[in-house]
Design a protein around this nucleic acid. Structure first.
Lengths: 205, 205
DNA sequence: CTCATAACGGGACTCCAGTTCCGTTAACTG
DNA sequence: CAGTTAACGGAACTGGAGTCCCGTTATGAG
């Protein structure tokens, strides 16, 4: 009598179950980009996905749960780091990647929704933290290489430099109406590189 | 027969109307800090404020409307800029002010809620943009002074420098679980100052 | 002070997001 | 290929968020 088994979808994850997840996540992304997080309706998503409303509620429970799963799906598809040979070049590549993602109507809306969801649900917040932790760790080595080359002082917090690239882009997306263009991405990269070289991210400094 | 007059509260804004607004905003802030944006219930707020549920719906309509008004109220109370004589000192003062605000349980939760609300309602987003525009304009002169002193190159986008101070603090609040301490505030200020002095925020650079 | 009516408050009502029930379909096992 | 049961899907149900109605309070003008 093991208490009613695990969550649905974990025992028989193949075939139909996988198809349902895929089409529901697809529909959820579409709905988010169209209506935004607040006006998200699970029944509407079920309709779009051509899936029973009950199924959506059973497997994801709430809008937050669905958004968290969507985030997991995004984390799996995110792009690998590229290398250019210089700190500024690497940070610029990262900044432009972030900028393109946030400027894209669908992806941008999705990120906004994910952030909104994370601000009001601890579990979703944790999923978001993990997502960014992964992304930051993916790009951090380029700062370490810059330290090794002597561009950046020893003891610099490599993760913080990567965060410093994304931060102004996020801030702009959320707190201003301005569009995110390539120039703002380049500026973010340049500022982060300059601050890093000046030793602003040296630990305990 | 002027079409049903203006919004309630605009014709007789004194006495009771003002008291109702004050106690409802107070209650809304409390509820936000306690339950977060998603689980906000206007009926609960009405109960806390000892005000009729109908009144809250009539005057603010939705959770978003209420949050937007709360934002307006916050904007009126925000602190004036201080001056220390150096760019780093001024930016540090700003960074610590932001850090203290976001680290405060009540204020921090409120900001998270406001951001969440802004991501899903254009009107609320605009209120948020105005709020930040005001705050940025309040602090921008300290960068201009630094330009005049020759600390920072001519042509620097003064507003962008101020945004660069807050951005990493916001980013940290939203995307990591780490606490916002004074050290992170100082780091943000130092990074912004270093980047500004290096000319990273020169327009068209 | 008096009056007109803006704004509030209680309670009944509506409507739909979210739940429950149970029959049907199709993964996985041996 | 047959049997077990995980997972799905339709339909009826429910609770509470948001609306409506109308009587009451008290603001601001004259």
């Amino acid at each position: 009598m093991r208490s009613e088994g695990a969550d649905p979808g974990t025992v028989r994850p193949g075939g139909r179950t996988a198809r349902v997840r895929e089409s529901v996540l697809q529909a959820a992304g579409d709905a988010l980009a169209e209506h935004g997080f607040a006006h998200l309706d699970l029944a509407d998503i079920a309709r779009r996905a051509e899936v029973g409303k009950t199924t959506v509620y059973r497997r994801w429970g709430t809008v937050n749960g669905l958004v968290a799963d969507l985030l997991l799906d995004m984390a799996e598809q995110s792009l690998p780091r590229t290398e250019t040979g210089s700190l500024l070049g690497d940070l610029q590549a990262n900044a432009r990647l972030v900028q393109r993602t946030l400027a894209d109507p669908r992806q941008g809306a999705l990120f906004k929704a994910v952030i909104a969801a994370a601000t009001c649900e601890a579990k979703t917040a944790e999923a978001l933290h993990r997502f960014y932790d992964t992304r930051v760790k993916e790009w951090a080595p380029c700062v370490q290489q810059a330290i090794d080359r002597g561009e950046v002082p020893e003891g610099t917090d490599v993760h913080e430099v990567i965060r410093a690239v994304s931060a102004p882009l996020f801030y702009r997306l959320l707190t201003t109406g301005d569009c995110l263009d390539e120039a703002s991405a380049d500026q973010a990269a340049e500022a982060a590189a300059a601050a890093a070289c000046a030793g602003a991210y040296v630990l305990g400094g």
